[in-house]
Amino acid sequence: MLIIIGTLPVKTMSLTQGFCVFKNGKLEIDGLTLPLINGTSIVMAAASIACEHIGIEKPYVIVAGDIGSGDGSNQLYRFLRNTNFDIAKKSCKNVITMSYLKPNILYAKDVVTALKKRINDILIADSGSMYVAKAAGIAKDFDLFTPDLGEMAFLADHEAIHPAYVRNYIFNSKNDVPGLIAKAYGSHDAAKSLIIKGVSDYVVEDGKIVAQISEPCVPTLEPIGGTGDSLLGIVSALVASGHKIIDSSIIACKTNRLMGALSNPDPATKVWEILRYIPDALNSSIKI
C-alpha cells in the first residue's frame, strides 16, 4: 500500500485520513475536496493518477492543515510516533512517502524509530521531511530522497540544518554533482538512494550514480512550482507497484520529463494543468 503523509495549506484542517482520488481536476479524500497547489496535494494527485494507470490500489493519505506554524506537522508527528498507525498493518509491505512536514528534530526521530519497527516498509522523503531527516542525523534510515540541486547542496553540507543555512562555497559548487554526492554519503546525510533533480536528473544508489536522465529537456519546467512533487508522487506509485527503487526512479524521471514535453508548457503554466499527461508519459517511459 502507498501511504502519503504531509501537510496542506488549510489553517483549520485537523488530521484527516483516507484514500485519495484525483478526477476531473478535483482532489478528494473520501468526498472531501482539497485545494490543489504545489506541495502535498500535487504529490497526492500525481500518485493517484499513476496508481490508477498502473492498476494498483489508490494512495492512502494522512494529512493535516499547516500554514507554517508547525501545528499540523506536529499533529502528524504525534500520530505517527504512537502505535495507532493501524492502516499500515493491513499490508506486509508499505511505501510511506512523507512531504512538507515542518522540521522538528525530536519528533522526527521518534517517528522514524516507530516506523522502522516495520522492517519491510519503504520510507521516502522529500522537502521538509527530508530536511528534518538530514538535520536529525537519520537520513540513512530512509530508502529514497528526491532533492533538487539546491537541496543536494544542503545534504552535502554536514553543518547545515536547513537548506537556507547551506554555506555559500558548497552552494556555489552545486553543479559538481559527484562531489556533492560524495560529501553527503561521506557524512551519512543521504538516504540509501537519491533522485537528484536538475537539468539532468541523477539516480544514485549507495553513493554511486547509476543513471543520468537528460531527455527530453524542457527548460520551462524549472519555474513551474510542484514538478518535484509530481515526480515524488509518480516514483512512490511505481515503488508501491513492486518496481525496484532504482528502476522506479529512472522511469519516474523520464515520465516527469515526458509529461512536461507533452504539455508544451510556458513559465506561467501551473503544475495541475499538466498532470493529465502522466498516463501517456508513463506508457512511453516504461517502454524506453
Binding site: P9, N38, G39, P103, M130, Y131, P223, G225
Partner: peptide, 16 residues
C-alpha cells in the same frame, strides 16, 4: 506566475 522550491508547510500557503 509561479513559486517553486522549498519544503516547509508555509510554501504552498504562500503560493496560494
Amino acid at each position: 506566475v509561479n513559486i517553486s522550491g522549498g519544503g516547509c508547510p508555509d510554501i504552498p500557503y504562500l503560493a496560494l
